Simulated scan of single mutants.
Amino acid sequence: MAKESTRLSAQDWARAAVRAIADGGLAAVAVEPLARTLGVTKGSFYAHYRNRDELVTAALAEWTRSHGDEGLAEFAAISDPAQRLRELLSAVVHAVRPLAPSVHLSLLGDRNDPRARDAVHRVNRARLELLTRTYGELGLPPDRAATRARIAYAAILGLVHLAQTDPHPPEAAHLADEAAAVFLPA
């Protein structure tokens, strides 16, 4: 049974578009396939958006919100920087699924689109700011904190990238412990 168009919100459409982006980049955001996935008619889409570009913009805003500052708020609220870093690393390692699509990596393929480039930039900035602040609170001077944050973030993105092709990754708990050992200052 199809959902009524009034039951689906604009955010439902945006979240479905985010999943489509993860699977195939911006080109995968198409109204008819999304309507089928959501179990509704195209009319439901037009109740919320005028066109596909509005949906892409909303999807990128949704991803930026959920993976940028707002998505990091629970970690930012952890007062102990060592615990914050452990929790961040653990969350990343446990969220990475073998062969799972990634919005972040898919958007890199669309980096010539200014909307995709801006969304990735804003998420990267939020993540790097939190990591830099965390390393600063752990006692590293500002330049070293920023450098360590970049290296840690590069490793995090590398784990996401490896998950795209590795059907048999190491156990998440072991990876989280090793990541903490590598990225927490001694």
Rank of each mutant, 00 (worst) to 15 (best):
Gly68Ile: 01
His48Val: 02
Gly25Ile: 02
Val40Phe: 00
Pro33Cys: 04
Arg36Ala: 13
Phe45Lys: 10
Lys42Tyr: 06
Arg50Lys: 15
His67Thr: 10
His48Thr: 06
Asp23Trp: 11
Asp23Cys: 14
Glu32Lys: 14
Pro33Phe: 05
Glu32Gly: 13
Ala17Glu: 06
Asn51Trp: 01
Glu54Tyr: 00
Gln11Cys: 03
Lys42Ser: 14
Arg52Tyr: 02
Ala35Asp: 09
Gly24Ile: 00
Arg36Leu: 12
Ala28His: 09
Arg65Trp: 04
Ser44Arg: 03
Thr41Ile: 04
Gly25Glu: 05
Leu38Gln: 13
Arg15Glu: 15
Ser44Val: 06
Asp12Trp: 02
Ala61Cys: 08
Arg36Tyr: 10
Asp23Glu: 15
Thr57Lys: 11
Val18Ser: 04
Pro33Leu: 05
Asp23Ala: 15
Ala58Met: 08
Tyr49Glu: 07
Ala61Arg: 13
Lys42Met: 09
Glu32Gln: 15
Phe45Gly: 09
Ser66Leu: 12
Ala35Leu: 09
His67Ser: 14
Ala20Arg: 11
His48Pro: 02
Ala61His: 10
Gln11Val: 13
Gln11Ser: 13
Trp63Leu: 03
Arg15Ile: 07
His67Leu: 01
Ala17His: 03
Glu32Ser: 14
Gly68Thr: 02
Gln11Lys: 13
Ala28Gly: 11
Gly25Phe: 00
Ala14Trp: 08
Ser66Glu: 15
Thr41Tyr: 11
Lys42Val: 09
Arg65Lys: 12
Trp13Tyr: 10
Gly43Asp: 12
Tyr46Trp: 11
Ala61Ile: 04
Val40Ser: 05
Ser66Ile: 01
Leu55Gly: 02
Glu32Val: 13
Ala14Gly: 08
Asp23Ile: 11
Thr37Ala: 15
Val18Cys: 04
Asn51His: 13
Val29Trp: 01
Arg15Met: 12
